[in-house]
Design a protein around this nucleic acid. Structure first.
Lengths: 339, 339
DNA sequence: TTGAAAGCGTTACCAG
DNA sequence: CTGGTAACGCTTTCAA
């Protein structure tokens, strides 16, 4: 029997309308009655019912957030960014993990719609999936994070994945590497991985290095995935001297395997990552990687969503944040003797 | 103008009550009308309004989750566990980050109450804070995760932090260490850190090693915090040969500092962590640490909460999960020569 | 400055 | 098996 504004009204001897006014800080309430109401609220231990308010105002004061895996620090960081921004606007976030499944994302979106979130910030597995089209044609505002801007009519905040991949692979080439492989995330789970692999191939190509299909492996975007994939790549001949990994987890997993085989990094093999999670600089060897501003990505995404909600921004907006190549020491000059 | 069950009713030529029945899978609807209603729903693009339903049923089908920092993989894992369990029950989770602040936790709880979450799973900074008492006396069910069972009337899922700390410190002692320091999280931000430090002190004491206040430093539960604290501990004389860290992040940060000073691990100094985040086994050197079942913690916490919600469980329940000492190679025998 | 009353979109009880 | 209708707890005109 949680009390309602009706109870408060009775105690304070005013109408529910007045109670509602003081609750909403409407200026048109005399200080005296205002105090009476406040006292009455104390008295009966009233707790505002946001659900009732939402039904009446058609505003849930909540946004939905969907990430592939909250356990990936990149997504944890951006979720934190979204959350901080949303909270500062008085909004809550309702969170969903998709485990890199478009189907799950679709389901989560449906639930969010029913719960009447005012907007969604999400990182989807495949921006070209049909449910994204459906979402686009619904009137629910949403902002994509990290995804590839294949569709110019979608709001999104991301980095230039193609360019970033190109740059880090070029770094390997400048170090003298010619036999460069890649461990990518499954393309159907991460359009970022697909595009990074394109940047990778383009870079090889433009430097006169022919790409071999067996030098690229798709795997899970995890330590374990990297570890497994590296075992396979170690069998390739002629041996690879540099590996570009779709994310830092994979890179660290690959390093684990290499080390277990008794090989040295970067002496025998150079490893490049992607994301620059905090751990990358504490790892041994420190990981050469692409920095992307994860927390900022979340903040910018939320900011864009709220601008759309407030009508401050109209058409689709595509924000490309800066990335940067972070040179550390998991990549070194190719070992000429070995070549 | 999203359509309502009223619109659906009109199209299908039935009453809203009937529409509601098919929406809720009530068996008492003739297949024919059921089909008509379903078709009508398609036709007008009806989306169920969960807010209205919540107001009517007084069930939000949502639980609140509060973590100190979603960017800590331990909490990310348990959040995932909570989420998976909640989703399987048809529930959503609304997430809040407290940044280890009791005040923020308190505020988040208030928002959650207004949003009428049906229960809360949280890791609080200080279980003895006043707001927890208030929460206890409200009728909102909640389950604490990771916290110290100082209050037997609270529902919680945790491990035996005291014992775990004791065990890992004893491991160091068995390796011959006598000069053992500790880097702990700030006690007012983490009651776990406080209790771990008690286990640490007790272990020293019972092994006839006197504890010196300057051998224990409180810091942030981050890489950076560990890095900083270790710089200070390196100045202590006689030098410490083993360091017990409140979590793996701190441990890795400490290792970074030690390595920068040109010292070897575990040759010169042994480092023990706590948590066994996945990274711990990929790190170099692999971290000796205490494993705690983070994902399982979340699952168990959610499970307990739902049991309370369904009335299946009555009184306060305190579940102590198993931890285990994971011996890797960041801790080794003390260097006798150095002693 | 305040009150009365009509919604907001469901559910659920009571009839039929 | 189906319909009518009063809640659910709040907001928001419209009047006074």
């Amino acid at each position: 029997m949680p009390s309602t504004i009706r109870d408060v009204a009775k105690i304070a001897e005013v109408s529910v309308a007045t109670v509602s006014r003081v609750l909403n800080r409407s200026a048109t309430v005399k200080e005296g009655t205002r105090q009476r109401v406040l006292k009455a609220i104390e008295e009966c231990g009233f707790t505002y019912n946001a659900i009732a308010r939402s039904l009446s105002t058609r505003k849930s004061v909540t946004i939905g957030v969907i990430v592939p895996a909250i356990t990936n620090p990149v997504f944890a960081q951006s979720t934190k960014g979204i959350q901080d921004f949303a909270n500062s606007c008085g909004y809550s976030i309702i969170l969903g993990n998709s485990d890199y499944s478009s189907k799950m994302e679709d389901q989560l979106v449906e639930v969010f719609k029913e719960k009447r979130v005012e907007g969604i910030v999400l990182t989807c597995s495949d921006i070209r999936h049909e449910y994204i089209q459906r979402l686009k044609h619904s009137k629910l505002p949403f902002v994509l994070l990290y995804n590839i801007p294949f569709d110019k009519e979608l709001n999104l905040v991301t980095i230039d994945n193609y360019k970033a991949a190109y740059e880090i692979v070029e770094h390997l080439i400048h170090l003298g590497h010619r036999r460069i492989g890649m461990i990518a995330g499954y393309f159907n789970m991460s359009d970022r991985s697909l595009v990074r692999s394109q940047g990778f191939k383009a870079c090889l190509n433009e430097h006169g290095i022919s790409f071999q299909q067996r030098d690229l492996i798709e795997t899970d975007l995890t330590f374990e995935g990297g570890k497994r994939a590296m075992k396979t790549l170690l069998e390739v001949t002629p041996p690879l001297t540099g590996i570009f990994c779709s994310n830092d987890f994979i890179g660290m997993g690959a390093i684990k395997t290499i080390r277990e085989k008794g090989l040295r990094i970067p002496g025998d093999i150079s490893i490049a990552g992607f994301d620059d999670i905090e751990m990358a600089s504490y790892f041994y060897p420190e990981l050469t990687t692409i920095h992307q501003p994860a927390y900022q990505m979340g903040v910018k995404g939320a900011e864009l969503l709220f601008k759309i909600l407030s009508g401050e921004v109209e058409g689709p907006r595509q924000i490309i944040l800066d990335h940067s190549l972070i040179v550390r020491n998991s990549c070194g000059p190719v070992n000429q003797l070995k070549q």
